[in-house]
Amino acid sequence: MRAIVTVIGHDRTGIIAEISMLLFKAGVNILDINQTVMQEFFTMTMLVDTKDATISFEELSKRLADKGEEMKLNIRIQREDIFNAMHRI
């Protein structure tokens, strides 16, 4: 299953490193990364594949949210379908 990880917050060092590590440990493959800084806000979206994940989607979602709290960032994961439904015909 493909999903989108979104990270929004103040820029700092190690954001990509920490999140990539978390995903790697969970067996989640990163397919694409898109990142920019908009009005001082660091914004990153990652397209990931969770088919070989070693933990449930729910657990992954929780770990990312916890990591977000720790790093003072808004981190979430959502299935890709919701974005496709809204923006693609």
Binding site: I4, I8, N34, T36, I82, F83, M86, R88
Partner: peptide
Amino acid sequence: MLTLTDILQTIE
């Protein structure tokens, strides 16, 4: 491929 703008629009 979805763009950053599409994704952020949905989240907003």
